[in-house]
Computed example of a mutant assay.
Amino acid sequence: MQHDTLLQLLESQQARFRVIEHPPEGRSDLVAEIRGTAPGQGAKAMLCKSKDGAGELALVILSGDRKLDFRKVAEALGIKKATLASPEEAMAATGNVIGAIPPFAEPGMRLLVDPALVESYGEIAFNAGRLDRSMVLNTEDYLRIAQPTLVSVCS
């Protein structure tokens, strides 16, 4: 989702959020420091797919300080093995470079969110379709608008 589209969505849904402009950065630990948020507040977006190339893409969101467990992702998606989409696939599917993908799925894409992210913080933070803009969004508003499937995807 592009930055301007995301802004329009959040404003139309009366979400509680703020935009932070900063130097371009996509690494979770560094951008958290720039934002002044906890690393675990960062909503790290990982675009996943079946290792055999079959099926749909899924956007998997986890805390910026956690590691993705591909076995759990595969189980949640009902596939044999999961892997990350390539940078080219990510750009084609989301319109964003890796590191700038916001935690909102494109139409027809599954959205999985690790519960630890949304249970631990009142706000989540993420790069908002650009490496030089972040959003800090109320967690309740995020869940209401994005309507993700909550499932443990971390090791």
Rank of each mutant, 00 (worst) to 15 (best):
M1V: 15
Q2L: 15
T5V: 14
Q8G: 13
Q8V: 12
L9W: 06
L10A: 05
L10K: 07
E11L: 12
E11Q: 13
I20T: 11
E21V: 01
E21L: 05
E21M: 05
H22Y: 00
P24V: 04
P24R: 09
E25G: 10
G26A: 14
S28W: 06
V31T: 14
A32C: 07
E33V: 06
G36T: 01
T37D: 04
A38H: 13
P39I: 00
G40P: 08
Q41R: 09
G42K: 09
A45C: 15
A45L: 06
M46W: 12
K49C: 12
K51M: 09
D52M: 08
G53W: 12
G55H: 07
G55K: 08
E56P: 14
L59S: 14
V60A: 10
I61M: 04
L62K: 03
L62F: 00
K67A: 13
F70L: 15
K72S: 04
K72D: 03
V73C: 08
A76F: 02
G78R: 12
A82K: 10
A82E: 06
T83C: 15
L84P: 10
A85G: 11
A85Q: 08
S86V: 07
P87E: 10
A90E: 08
M91P: 10
T94Q: 07
T94K: 09
V97C: 14
I98D: 13
G99K: 13
A100C: 05
A100G: 15
I101W: 10
P103N: 10
P103W: 08
F104N: 03
E106G: 01
P107V: 04
M109G: 04
L111P: 06
L111K: 07
D114F: 06
D114A: 06
S120R: 10
E123P: 07
A125V: 01
F126A: 00
R130Q: 15
V136W: 03
V136P: 08
L137S: 02
E140K: 12
E140I: 06
D141F: 05
R144D: 00
R144Y: 05
R144S: 01
R144H: 01
I145N: 04
V151F: 05
V151L: 02
S152K: 12
C154T: 13
C154F: 09
C154P: 12
